[in-house]
Simulated scan of single mutants.
Amino acid sequence: MAFSRRSFVFVLLMVVVGLNLRPALSSIAPLLARLQETAGLSAFAAGVLTTLPVLCLGLAAPLAPLLAHRLGSERALGLSLAALATGLILRGLPLPGVLFLGTAMAGAAIGVGGTLLPALVKRELPGNADLVTGIYTMALCLGGALGAGLSIPLAELWGSWRLGLMSWSLLAIFALILWLGYMPAPAATPLASIQQQSLLQLLKKALTWQIMLYMGMQSSMAYIVFGWLPTLLIYRGYAEANAGWLMSVSIMCQIFSALGAPWLARLGRDQRPALLLMLLCTAAGLWLLLIAPLAWRWPGAVLLGLGQGGSFSLALTLLVLRTANSRLSGQLSGLVQGGGYTLASLGPLSVGLLLQAGADITHIAWLLIGLIGVCCGLAMFAGRNRQLDNEDGKLVTRKH
């Protein structure tokens, strides 16, 4: 994979931006028990707090093509970074309701930024879009791991969970400065041009729904882990810090599979074997962490991380492999991430409701494993070697 200087700068910028698109989600979970004690959050309110950014992420994702059309994809991404930094500052202020408001704003900003980047990758590096998407996903996973692992240490360092949460805005401001200084030149034709294929035509394609539902199911597992894994582990008897580090190790392991899964997917005729392997690793990791004896916690954390990192990387890879050009990639990205993340938001909320109702951890674990089984069925369709393309003004699905 050979890079020009322009491509190399773009990849570095993509990594820095990617680092910012998960700490807002993963930094809350290790502090959730503390927030329930100090801020008086009920299990339901905690569920809402973990669901809110994912829901806003999904609702905001379809706005990305509209912003790209009006501002250009590059400026729209800069605007999303500015909104992210603002939301991260807001959620730490000692004012009524701003914890939820700032969290929602950060989630919406992530939805826009995360939708724009795959289409930019398809435009800037079309020949290696799937492998570069793996690098981008690796940056997302590393950002998530930093958010989970440093959340409590930062709160202890600053002597306040509020300042600890606000400190993540510094990383977003740094990314914004770099992006404004070195972002790629605007394309002659915006990614979201007026002549775009109708979104309704995309919605009529079975392939769109297959990828969207796969994205939603696997993302639901990811955000349940981001939002509730430390709490579930604490219920099993772990200390707060140990639970946070188990989650951090799991997310760190996502880095390796996020980078390696697209390479693995290239070995076969389609992505189905790679998708199923990653989902089985996820299921095994959940079983070891939440059901098996406590001695199996570290293998469980590793397997969970490898499975989730690879599953998410392949989900983003499908957005570029299942479209013939960057314009369609941007549209599919907005639809799939919008619908998928909106569906995914039900996961953390459901876990909060189950815990408030007194559900046993083992029962919750088996429910999650069952949902992974459903996701395997979706992967068998989404992983087939198909591609959406324009033909005589119509949207068609053909073998790639």
Results as ranks from 00 to 15, higher is better:
F226W: 13
C253P: 02
F256Q: 00
Y214E: 09
M247P: 00
A239P: 03
S250Q: 00
E240D: 08
Y223C: 07
I224Q: 09
W245A: 10
W245F: 11
A258I: 03
F226I: 07
V225Y: 05
I224H: 12
F226K: 07
A239F: 01
W228K: 05
M252N: 05
G237N: 03
G237M: 10
A239S: 15
I224G: 12
M215T: 11
I251C: 06
Y238R: 13
L232G: 05
E240K: 09
S219Y: 02
P230R: 03
F256I: 03
G227Y: 09
S219D: 03
N242D: 15
Q218Y: 07
I251Q: 08
M252P: 01
L232W: 02
L259N: 11
T231G: 08
S257C: 05
E240C: 03
N242P: 00
Y214V: 08
A222W: 01
Y235M: 12
G216T: 11
S219A: 13
I255P: 01
G237W: 07
A258S: 15
A222G: 05
I224W: 09
A241V: 14
F226G: 08
G216Q: 04
A243Y: 01
E240V: 09
I234H: 07
M215E: 11
Q254R: 03
T231V: 13
C253F: 04
M247K: 06
S257K: 01
I224R: 11
R236A: 00
L259A: 15
Y214A: 11
W228Y: 04
M221G: 02
Q254K: 05
L233R: 14
S219K: 01
C253E: 06
G244W: 00
I234Y: 02
A222H: 11
S250E: 08
Y214N: 03
I251R: 09
M217F: 15
F226Q: 06
S248M: 13
W245V: 06
A239D: 15
W245D: 06
M221V: 10
F256P: 00
Y214R: 04
S257R: 02
W245C: 05
G227M: 03
S248C: 14
G216C: 04
L259R: 12
L232Q: 01
Y223A: 08
I251T: 07
A241I: 11
A258V: 04
I224L: 14
Y238H: 13
M217C: 14
P230L: 06
P230V: 04
A222F: 14
S250H: 04
L229K: 02
G260P: 06
S219Q: 04
V249R: 01
T231F: 06
M217Y: 12
A222M: 15
P230F: 02
S220Q: 13
M252A: 14
Y214K: 09
G244K: 08
Q218H: 11
L259C: 05
V249Y: 02
S248N: 08
M215L: 12
A241Q: 15
I255T: 15
W245I: 13
M252T: 14
P230M: 03
M252I: 15
T231A: 13
L233Y: 01
A243C: 08
M217E: 13
L259G: 14
A239M: 11
Y235I: 07
I224C: 14
C253A: 10
L232V: 10
V249N: 03
M215Q: 11
F226A: 09
A239I: 07
L232M: 02
W228I: 01
E240H: 00
L233Q: 05
Y214D: 03
Y223Q: 09
S257I: 04
A239H: 14
L259S: 13
M247N: 10
W245L: 11
Q254H: 11
N242H: 14
G237P: 13
